[in-house]
């Protein structure tokens, strides 16, 4: 058994959450640069150049890439042989998110009750923490600051098994079409297929952790990702939504077994500021 103080988890989350907000991952920058070569719309090209320039300014000045510094989605893979001491994982992560907010001048974007008063918690916590027990004696943490513009346009559907891959493509394309310019295209799509209604949504979120340009290891799913990407790019929404040939920079599917009578599908849209960071204790 390895003891890991909760304060180590807090410190790691605080560092990762700031890193993610200031530094666009290199694979995302690569995807934007690739899009610049493909885009045909002049306004679209200007938008892509603006986004690359923005990434440079954010990294150099340590200013958040986007004013929406996100709902803190945090995935923690905790080794079975780890004992976290001092506080609960949720408390440790929440403290890290708040510390990142203070040190990094990030925005507090969370309200305490969704229905009535909607009072800001002031800390940007609580985080949406997903804990997983894995073999080993280390803790891996991945943070995904998630902007609301793209989260608001994401959808879940319970398709019929007979809808099959074509139904999944149709639902993904329709979701992006309905989203239009709102999720800050060019977007990334995390798609969860199977499991249950809730599991599909979680898989979709988790899929957003996969680096741009990496296809699913199963070639059939990799092919489906490519088909969805092509169909979405045929929509013409383009960078910024101003029209263009690049609407989507990447599609990642994660799947799980499901009931004989169901085909749950969740499409989680991620904005062009596809921020994430990972670290291990």
């Amino acid at each position: 058994m390895r003891d890991i103080p909760a304060s180590d988890i807090t410190a790691l989350v605080a560092r990762l959450y700031q890193d993610a907000n200031f530094n666009l991952p290199s694979d995302v920058i690569g995807a934007l640069e690739g899009a610049l070569l493909e885009e045909k719309s002049l306004t679209g090209i200007e938008v892509l150049e603006t986004l690359l320039k923005n990434a440079g300014i954010a990294a150099r000045k340590r200013v958040p890439l986007c004013q929406d510094t996100g709902l803190a989605v945090v995935f923690a893979e905790v080794g079975r042989d780890v004992h976290i001491t001092g506080s609960t994982p949720q408390e440790a992560v929440d403290e890290g998110v708040d510390q990142a907010r203070r040190e990094g001048h990030l925005r507090a974007s969370i309200v305490s009750d969704p229905c009535f008063d909607r009072v800001n918690t002031g800390t940007n916590a609580p985080a949406m923490l997903h804990l997983e027990l894995v073999p080993g004696d280390s803790v891996k943490i991945s943070v995904l600051p998630k902007g609301a513009g793209s989260e608001n346009m994401s959808r879940t559907a319970m398709l019929k098994p007979a809808d099959g891959p074509d139904g999944i493509i149709r639902f993904a394309v329709d979701t992006v079409e309905a989203a239009g310019a709102n999720p800050c295209p060019p977007v990334f799509l995390g798609i969860g297929v199977g499991g249950s209604m809730d599991r599909a949504a979680l898989l979709a979120k988790k899929a957003l952790l996969r680096p741009a340009g990496e296809a699913h290891i199963d070639p059939r799913l990799g092919g489906l990702e490519q088909k969805i990407m092509d169909a979405v790019n045929d929509l013409g929404i383009g960078p910024g939504g101003f029209g263009g040939v690049v609407t989507c920079l990447g599609v990642a599917i994660e799947e799980y077994p499901c009931h004989i009578a169901t085909l749950p599908v969740a499409v989680n849209i991620q904005c062009n500021s596809a921020r994430r960071a990972s670290g291990r204790i």
Binding site: T43, D174, E177, D234, I237, G241, G243
Partner: peptide, 17 residues
């Protein structure tokens, strides 16, 4: 938005489901 999308669209428009 609608002008830009119409110009670069390469697929038939579908009603959202």
């Amino acid at each position: 938005y609608s002008a830009g999308r119409a110009r670069y669209r390469r697929s038939a428009s579908r009603k959202s489901c």
